[in-house]
């Protein structure tokens, strides 16, 4: 089966064309650009590039799989809305997957794993993983969460993890007594692996809901300020 993989949950803008057979997914063409400011610009051109390189039309694609985060919001939404519009326009099913699961799926070996990505504001998105499932995906042990890195040792206590992957693994692994491993970002093969069973069985996709893990920043206003306090625009 021919599958498009998209992810914009990290600084990497990822588009891939992936062949999904019975075993592990196999990438036919991919474009990954690490640029946290260019998700909106790069994603669709990269997608057209991989289709051209793979020698396929959008209409031949059997499914679209998109990383639903967690990730910084503005970038994350680019991938989600792009996938939704592509799915609508081509009549193709769109499957959301956890972007952390996608990173986990492409780690080497089966050692208990921590995946860490940048949540900005001095926080990290993280989840933990155990053994392999179908298509090379890993069994998730704990749900994606957002915390400060210094809170992690307490959160991970008793979990006997060995390795860490994701863009912040190299920065924090040593402090956590773990060995940093690849990949740093979701890969097209990893993204498709996570949804492999659903894609193969043509299951009804889950709703395309991004994993924000944080509420929007917004304060309810207090009573109107007095005129003197209001001088100078706020």
């Amino acid at each position: 089966m021919l599958v498009i993989a998209l992810d914009t949950s990290t600084p990497a803008v990822t588009a891939g064309l992936v062949e999904l057979a019975d075993s592990r997914p196999h990438s036919l063409a991919e474009r990954v650009t690490v640029n946290p400011r260019a998700h909106g610009e790069l994603l669709t051109p990269q997608l057209l590039d991989v289709l051209a390189e793979g020698g396929h039309q959008l209409g031949e694609v059997d499914a679209i799989v998109v990383g639903a985060g967690p990730g910084p919001f503005t970038g994350l939404r680019v991938g989600m809305v792009t996938a939704a519009a592509l799915g609508h326009a081509s009549g193709t099913r769109v499957y959301p997957v956890s972007s952390l699961d996608a990173i986990a799926a492409r780690t080497d070996g089966d050692s208990p794993l921590l995946v860490l990505t940048d949540a900005r504001r001095s926080e990290v998105y993280w989840a933990t993983y155990g053994g392999r499932k179908a298509h090379g995906a890993r069994e998730r042990l704990t749900a994606p969460a957002v915390d400060r890195p210094e809170e992690l040792p307490a959160r991970l206590e008793g979990m006997r993890l060995e390795v860490a992957a994701g863009e912040l693994a190299s920065r924090h692994a040593a402090d956590l007594g773990l060995r940093a491993v690849e990949p740093a970002y979701p890969t097209p093969e990893g993204i498709v692996a996570v949804a492999g069973d659903e894609v193969r069985s043509e299951a009804d996709p889950a709703p395309l809901v991004p994993m924000y893990l944080r509420r929007p920043d917004a304060a309810t206003p207090g009573p109107p300020k007095t005129v003197t306090a209001e001088r100078g625009r706020t």
């Binding site: 994603l43 680019v78 519009a85 592509l86 326009a89």
Partner: peptide, 11 residues
């Protein structure tokens, strides 16, 4: 803008 690009590219 992201949605519009995807619709334009797909169509």
């Amino acid at each position: 803008v992201s949605a519009a690009k995807a619709y334009a590219a797909a169509l």
